[in-house]
Design a protein around this nucleic acid. Structure first.
Length: 1316
RNA sequence: GGGCGUAUAGCUCAGUUGGCUAGAGCGCAGCUCUGAUAAAGCUGAGGUCCUCGGUUCGAAUCCAAGUACGCCCA
């Protein structure tokens, strides 16, 4: 029998459910149940195991869990693997902080091995933490035991042998390092870790393929560089660290070499030319780069001016449009595009160039010329005295330009165009003459390469000037004092024109916050000239949601991206498997390198150092010891010290986690994966990009027939039989290469105002803060119902309001990291709870609490659906629609569709079905009351089905409903009976059978000698398999009578007509409520009659059939169907444009006018379904003559009829239904209204007294109003029945502490006592 | 500068192939109901559908231009 249902207590309930799942191994049972079924493969994007989860992580994880639960309930075998991202700078940064190491040298001194072990420890620690958080969210996957992870973390770096039990149940021993390197392998189960040897080695295989295709190269490029981090940043990382910064920018002048101008410019030849004192005007925000200036670029098509300063007669050249250009005028007013990027206070508005020269004594424009005329002019650089400017071949030496030096290259050059064809030099900011330092900027570097001029790279690894830069040597490039020093020098040389404060968005190191500089570096790259192959793969993937245009965004990135920099000069990460030897032959530098594709290959090639690596993971520092022999020279090759870009780690997982290297058949059954879902901003150039690239390359030399068959039938997810190699192996199609079939992206979690939440300012909400205050079912629903294409405005963390939360381990006011737990307010969560979860719970509790009283038996024979009342069939029909919608939307990966349909259903259930049927549940028990039984059975089916339908979305509350409705509900024996019969207490298994009322008969039980016992008979007769958890149930199927695979297809099909009829009834009720409102007539006051008219005969009959529903809901004595309401109302006729437009075209305007002017009586036949002919004057024709009136035949369908006025009665209309409500109140009606008021007040008193719903009472009242007394006397029997009163008496002796209440228009004092 | 996207009620957003009086939730105001009580329902106020053209009998919807904002790229 059901247990009584009290308050929802959602959060407490969630903890109970978690315990239930764990104690009963429900997840394991689900996996067993689905083993061998068709596969559905989800691929988890690895979460960085570096910090605890916030609410922003929970969105994606809710998707991941909900879709996996859905596919499990629809009978699929799933991979169930979570992933942790483990390697890379993110972790290093935090470990550096933990260990208080400030720099790369400090780490080297500390010991790379110890440092790497510390990184592993941190990853394991937070993997354990995130695992626990995910479990709290209800995320079901093959989790490692968090305690095992913590044990491994504590033993990392020791030689101690540790024994662990893997998630799959195996017992394994080894050092922590050995075990950790194998985490997540297919035999052990559990989450994958990107630091695993398998993951790293699979990347090696990828890089080997790149190498075989000749795509790996060492390049010199100017990259953003962090001086403190000692590392270059890739294009991807830079975008994450942009900040608004104020730099000192300067206008500086480069003296032109005498006669240079007049030599080339046609314009200047003919004008009065002064050969002295002519300058290029140049502007820069990075003054330190002037030391390394080599050239000055112009746009040949742009107009330039020759300006003479009146102060000293100097002449300046710069772009004409820049003279008056309002520099950063928009930014001054509106900021730089983000709220935190408003114009910095204290920074003055920028001056235009004209203004600068005016302030310096005025100017005049002497001539205008094209940029093309300036190309080739020679100038003198600002720091030509530095030795570096005279170094042949530049700095560092480049043999291709060994005869040139920096200062010999100083010329005006064409800035050229970018890859899209846009000019690199444009008017606007600056001067239209761009200072080019090929060693200090990426554009400069590219241009320098094109022009064949030398480069001067001034900075060392720490961001300071190298030798050869005179007084600059040793100075740090980002130090403001260095800029000041540049200004001093320029001033002394009379080259400084103006210094100003210049705010702009500048890249910063996202970890230290330091400014990045552009530095010439040698890094390793993958040549991405095979981007078209990746694009094809991209095209073959389904990108959701549609509105985000993910495919286009990815393709755009693939078009514009540059070669992929994969190296980083750091410690913790993938050891790039590149071995090199650098040497000189005849003074020429040579670089030989090889890429190892596996550890096995490395071992076979290793000539020394293998013993150092043995027993360790292939990480620094151990792998650095291994040397191989260079076959060309016979000398040793060493590994480059760089570690890999972490996106390689995440990009390889479609292969490394699917046994690509170890078990091709297992891999084939999973590839391509069905779904990937991740928060998308940024991932188009990160994870999505890396997966697409790596998959394309991995599949490059695979062939169909031998390689895979999965792509052959992309629509099915069943395992493919392995096939013999095809006779003719074909190259793979993009569809076969793609790593996954569908990608579902979602946007970001924001605060209440739509602004990002930051850890640093205390606005970021930690997962448990939200979970234990809002409830995770609530959060999950909020995530699942939200449009993934839009940011989710989660709510606000009040950092000044600490709170204490309940956890399974007791109350706490801080997180595991020691941060205070603060109040979290979330409007959308409150809305979900109020609109979805509470109505659902209330519906459930209403049902259970009455079903208990009536001892409703779910196993009682079903009242045939056809025999149930219309309203029962209506809600069941709606349920069918909901089942179909839910399945469709889950399979479209559109949970908002599921949630909105479910929300509408729950609203119908609670605000229509239950409200309309309450009285059926209240009736006293009678065995023959099949109507009541039908109500119970209907609601039981609705609630059980709902629990299953919503189980993927709100797994906790659905489990609680299911446990009570199904598990408890089917239990028909009392526990003590069973204990008596067994003669012992119940063990776990028999306890379960007991809860099922013996629905599952355990084999091991011995049949008692007295097998005639009633208990045994019952158990034997009802041997049926009832799943133990809602999550072990099949997802409901439409039109199936029940949930079992018994082939019973007898349907309960959707009845759209019934749904339409009920919608009409709801419409009439809504209109009736509106009229009552207008006439100020409360619903408790019965009214005599409601009349309605409707020209559509079907709808008229529909309303008639539901008259009882409408009468009861609106408290009416009579509902009358009428042909027309002519004597009560008047009508307005409006054209149906959709019908008339196509028929009459231009005449429509005239018809509308004519219709408005026509006597309504003429149009009356339309209401009877007849047509009417109108003469319509179509106005003037083109020739200006009066046209002949046109005869227009109007059909009823051409016209909308609405009600306008009411006489005596009140009336309204909507969607072609007109109603009129009688407002006339007879004494009888008034009396009944008084009686209903009285009942209501008594019920309130019952509630105030906390009476049980079945308690009987005595009622007393005192009224000095005659009408009330008469009414109560006349209605006394009714009153007693309604309030379960034995007596109803008028008394004058009013007890104290009673209040008088309003009944009708009178004041009455009522009090009650419990009947003896 | 280029590409993509967005612009509808105070706020957050729907609005399907052009067609009825442009909708929902929240908020606000009022009312009702309560034998579901952490309830619930109803009604109301509130809109130049960013602007200006064009196509059409008819445009929030399609086309063009512009404005503003967002994202990406440079």
């Amino acid at each position: 029998m059901f247990e009584k249902v009290g308050d929802a207590s959602f959060i407490k309930g969630e903890h109970e459910v978690l315990k239930f799942w764990e104690q009963n191994s429900i997840f394991d049972k689900l996996r067993q149940q689905n083993a061998g079924k068709p596969k559905w493969n989800f691929l988890d994007g690895p979460i960085t195991a570096n910090n605890p989860m916030g609410v922003h992580h929970a969105w994606g994880r809710t998707y991941k869990d909900a879709y996996q639960r859905y596919y499990a309930m629809t009978g699929h075998e799933l991979r169930y693997q979570n992933g942790f991202d483990c390697q890379g700078l993110w972790v290093e940064v935090e470990v550096e902080k933990e260990l208080n190491l400030g720099s790369k040298t400090a780490i080297a001194e500390y010991g790379i091995d110890k440092f790497v072990d510390a990184c592993k420890r941190r990853v394991l620690k937070f993997a354990a933490r995130q695992t626990e958080q995910s479990i709290r969210l209800g995320y079901w996957t093959d989790w490692d035991d968090p305690d095992t992870l913590r044990l491994l973390a504590s033993k990392i770096g020791t030689e101690e042998v540790v024994t662990i039990t893997t998630p799959s149940g195996k017992t394994e021993s080894g050092t922590a390092s050995e075990l950790v390197a194998r985490l997540g392998n297919a035999e052990w189960g559990g989450s994958y870790f990107t630091f695993s040897t398998e993951n790293n080695e699979t990347i090696w295989a990828f890089l080997k393929k790149c190498f075989r295709r000749g795509k790996i190269y060492r390049g010199y490029d100017v990259m953003p560089w962090s001086g403190r981090g000692g590392s270059a940043y890739s294009q991807m990382e830079v975008a994450d660290g942009r900040k608004l910064t104020v730099h000192k920018s300067i206008f500086v002048r480069f003296p032109l070499v005498q006669n240079a101008a007049s030599q080339t410019s046609e314009v200047l030849k003919t004008s009065e030319v002064s050969n002295a004192n002519e300058f290029l005007l140049v502007w820069t925000t990075t003054p330190w780069t002037l030391t390394s200036n080599v050239a000055a670029a112009v746009n040949p098509d742009l107009d330039y001016v020759k300006l003479r300063s009146k102060r000293d007669g100097s002449v300046y050249y710069f772009a004409k449009d820049n003279l008056e250009y309002p520099r950063l005028a928009k930014e001054f007013k509106e900021g730089f595009g983000r709220t935190e990027w408003s114009w910095p206070t204290g920074v003055p508005k920028l001056k235009s160039i004209a203004q600068i020269f005016k302030e310096q004594g005025g100017y005049e424009i002497e001539a205008t010329l094209k940029g093309s005329e300036m190309i080739g002019w020679e100038y003198t650089g600002p720091f030509d005295d530095l030795p570096a400017q005279s170094a042949l071949g530049g700095v560092p030496f480049d043999p291709r330009v060994k005869d040139k030096c920096g200062k010999a290259c100083h010329r005006v050059v064409d800035g050229g165009r970018d890859f899209k064809g846009n000019p690199m030099v444009v008017a606007g900011e600056g001067t239209g003459i761009v200072h080019i330092a090929p060693g200090c900027g990426d554009v400069d570097h590219t241009l320098g390469q094109q022009l064949g001029i030398v480069g001067i790279a001034p900075l060392g690894e720490d961001g300071s000037f190298l030798d050869g830069f005179g007084p600059f040597t040793g100075r740090n490039s980002t130090d403001p004092a260095t800029a000041e020093f540049v200004f001093e020098q320029l001033k002394a040389k009379h080259l400084l024109v103006n210094v100003e404060q210049y705010p702009h968005i500048y890249p910063h190191c996202w970890r230290t916050g330091d400014e990045l500089v552009f530095r010439l570096v040698d890094e390793w790259f993958i040549n991405m000239d095979w981007r078209d192959e990746i694009k094809e793969v991209t095209e073959s993937i389904r990108w959701l949601p549609d509105s985000v245009n993910g495919k286009e965004r990815e393709l755009e990135w693939l078009t514009s991206m540059r070669d992929w920099m994969i190296s980083k000069k750091r410690f913790w990460g993938l050891a790039l498997p590149i071995w090199v030897e650098e040497y000189e032959v005849n003074g020429e530098k040579r670089l030989d390198f090889e890429v190892m594709g596996s550890l096995e290959e490395l071992k076979s090639r290793a000539v020394e150092g293998w013993e150092v690596l043995e027993g360790h993971t292939p990480h620094r520092p151990w792998i650095d010891a291994v040397k191989i022999k260079n076959p060309k020279t016979g000398r040793l090759m060493s590994r480059i010290v760089d570690v890999g870009n972490p996106w390689l780690d995440a990009g390889i997982v479609p292969f490394s986690t699917t046994q690509f290297n170890t078990n091709r058949e297992a891999w084939q059954s999973q590839y391509p994966l069905d779904l990937v879902t991740e928060c998308f901003p940024g991932q188009f150039r990160n994870w999505f990009y890396s997966m697409l690239s790596l998959a394309t390359m991995m599949m490059w030399d695979e062939v169909s027939g031998t390689a895979l068959a999965a792509g052959d039938s992309p629509e099915t997810s069943s395992p493919q039989p392995s096939r013999p190699p095809a006779a003719s192996a074909l190259p793979l199609t993009a569809e076969q290469k793609r790593p996954f079939k569908t990608l579902l992206g979602h946007r970001l979690v924001m605060n209440e105002d739509g602004q990002p939440m930051h850890k640093s300012d205390g606005t970021a909400i930690w997962f448990e803060e939200a979970a234990e205050q809002l409830g995770v079912d609530t959060m999950r629903w909020m995530y699942l119902a939200h449009n993934p294409a839009q940011d989710l405005r989660f709510g606000t963390r009040h950092k000044d309001k600490p709170v204490t939360i309940e956890t399974p381990d007791g109350p706490t006011d801080h997180t595991a990291e020691g941060l205070p737990v603060c109040e979290v307010v979330s409007k959308p969560a409150d809305e979900v709870r109020r609109q979805i979860l509470i109505p659902l719970w209330n519906s459930y509790s209403f049902f259970v609490n009455y079903a208990r009283l009536d001892e409703f038996d779910p196993l009682a024979p079903q009242v045939p659906v056809e025999e149930r009342p219309e309203i029962d069939r209506w809600i069941l029909s709606n349920l069918q629609a909901l089942i179909a919608t839910s399945r469709r939307e889950f399979e479209n990966y559109n949970t908002p569709g599921v949630c909105s349909a479910a929300a509408a259903f729950i609203d119908d259930l609670s605000n229509w079905y239950i409200r309309r049927n309450r009285r059926r549940f209240w009736r006293s028990r009678e065995a023959s009351d099949t109507d009541k039984l039908a109500a119970y059975q209907t609601m039981y089916e609705v609630l059980v089905t709902l629990a299953k339908l919503l189980a993927p979305c709100a797994p906790f509350v659905c489990e609680r409903m299911y446990q009570n409705l199904v598990v408890n509900g089917l239990r028909t024996l009392e526990r003590n009976e069973l204990v008596k019969w067994l003669g012992s207490e119940l063990d776990e298994q028999s306890n379960w059978a007991f809860r099922l009322g013996f629905k599952r008969w355990p084999e091991k039980w011995e049949v008692p000698a007295d097998n005639n016992s009633a208990v045994y008979a019952f158990a034997k007769n009802s041997c049926e398999d009832v799943p133990r958890s809602v999550h072990l149930c099949r997802f409901p199927q439409p039109d199936w009578r029940n949930d079992h695979d018994d082939g019973d297809m007898e349907g309960r099909p959707l009845d759209p007509e019934l749904n339409e009829r009920m919608a009409l009834a709801q419409l009439v009720v809504k209109l009736g409520h509106k009229l009552r409102e207008e006439a100020d007539l409360r619903v408790r006051q019965p009214l005599a009659e409601l009349r309605f008219a409707c020209s559509d005969p079907w709808r008229r009959i529909a309303i008639e059939r539901l008259a009882d529903v409408i009468e009861e809901e609106l408290n009416l004595k009579k509902l009358t169907s009428c042909d027309h309401l002519d004597d009560l109302v008047s009508y307005v006729y409006k054209p149906n444009q959709k019908a008339l437009g196509p028929k009459y075209g231009k005449l429509l305007g005239a018809i509308t006018q004519t219709l408005a002017a026509t006597d309504p009586n003429t149009l009356a036949p339309l209401r009877r379904g007849e047509s009417v002919t109108l003469k319509v004057d179509s106005g003037r024709t083109g020739s200006g003559q009066e046209s002949q009136p046109t005869e227009v035949v109007l059909l009823p369908a051409d016209i909308f009829i609405t009600t306008q006025q009411a006489a005596e009665w009140i009336s309204t209309d909507e969607r072609g239904v007109q109603i009129a409500l009688s407002t006339h109140l007879t004494p009888e009606l008034l009396q009944e209204g008084i009686a209903r008021d009285f009942v209501r007040q008594v019920q309130q008193l019952r509630k105030d007294a906390n009476l049980e719903i079945q308690d009987r009472i005595n009622v007393y009242y005192s009224a000095d109003n005659g009408d009330v007394t008469v009414a109560l006397t006349n209605w006394s029997e009714y009153l007693k029945t309604e309030t379960l009163a034995n007596t109803l008496d008028a008394l004058n002796a009013i007890p104290t502490d009673t209040k008088s209440v309003t009944v009708g228009n009178a004041k009455v004092t009522i009090w009650i006592e419990v009947a003896k």
